[in-house]
């Protein structure tokens, strides 16, 4: 449609563009720009070319932080998305399970501080709930310093993350499954298919779009993770749970290295964008393939 004046479309877009450009685009360009400088945020910046990037790619803590967030993302795909899907399958299989769905969503709404304080107490090696439980069942030797042990700290955070977000994916899958036409599943049931078979072979493929989006949210959201890591372990013990975002905050606000931190930001952003674009390309291809 033709606007009644050449300028009206731009006027319509102006407010949104203003906020988006001011709060996101401009600072993003600024971050790229700053990444080529050695800058403490106060004094005169010194142009250093790609030196920050060279340093970032040799920084073992930063490289490890990618590894950690990779583990976190893979673990949460199972603990959040897969469990959410299975729960949704169970909840939609019978009537009367709705209250579970409503209840399991609650942690998503809780402030991270509440969750972290609570779970830090659960994991506390000296007087925590796990220790209390193990003492009670006569197996105190099974107790560990859960958040202080390199083997467990990251997994503990993944576990808590699963505890929070499984209900979120449950809600998404629930609505998706509701949209699967009854006739299809009923027809399959008449043919004698078991309900779990109907779920995996018919329903899950039919809500492909839903779990594709869920995976994307889980992956890109996971890479941006911050609060849980910051409050539960602050990156410790000795960087064992450091993720790119916590390391970035440490570099900028503790070490006062705005330029270096910006280069980390650019690297992380590139990774997220590449994953996003590859994902959408793969998705577009596979969507074509199943079109009939």
């Amino acid at each position: 449609m033709k606007p009644s004046s050449r300028w009206t479309p731009y006027l319509f877009i102006a407010p949104a563009l203003f906020f988006f450009a001011f709060a996101v685009l401009l600072p993003m360009v600024g971050t790229v720009f700053a990444s080529f400088f050695q800058w403490d945020g106060f004094h005169e910046p010194i142009f250093v070319g790609f030196r920050n990037y060279g340093r970032a790619l040799q920084d073992t803590i930063f490289l490890q932080s990618f590894w950690h967030v990779g583990i976190y993302v893979i673990a949460t795909i199972f603990l959040e998305v897969a469990i959410g899907l299975i729960l949704a399958g169970i909840v939609t299989s019978r009537k009367g399970f709705n209250s579970y769905r409503i209840a399991l969503f609650i942690p998503v709404l809780l402030p991270t501080v509440v969750i972290s304080v609570l779970w830090r107490f659960v994991f506390n090696a000296d007087f925590g709930l796990i220790k209390g439980f193990l003492d009670a069942i006569g197996k105190p030797e099974w107790n560990h310093v859960w958040l202080g042990d390199k083997r467990f700290a990251l997994l503990a955070i993944c576990f808590v993350s699963g505890w929070i977000y499984a209900g979120f994916y449950l809600a998404i899958f629930y609505a998706g499954l509701q949209r699967v036409p009854k006739e299809i599943t009923e027809a399959a049931a008449i043919d004698g298919a078991k309900s779990w078979k109907i779920f995996w072979k018919i329903k899950v493929p039919m809500i492909r779009r839903v779990w594709e989006v869920s995976l994307l949210i889980c992956i890109t959201g996971g890479i941006q993770g911050f609060d849980l890591f910051y409050i539960m372990t602050n990156g410790g013990p000795y960087y064992a749970t450091e993720v790119p975002t916590t390391y970035m905050v440490r570099s900028v606000f503790r070490d006062g290295e705005v330029g270096f931190g910006s280069s980390l930001a650019v690297i992380v952003t590139s990774a997220v964008l590449i994953i996003g674009f590859v994902y959408s390309k793969v998705r577009a291809k596979s969507a074509e393939a199943v079109e009939y």
Partner: peptide, 18 residues
Amino acid sequence: NASANTIADQEAYTLFFK
């Protein structure tokens, strides 16, 4: 204490007091 690197200063006070 084995938990030294995981607990905050105040938690260590509690541990000592207990």
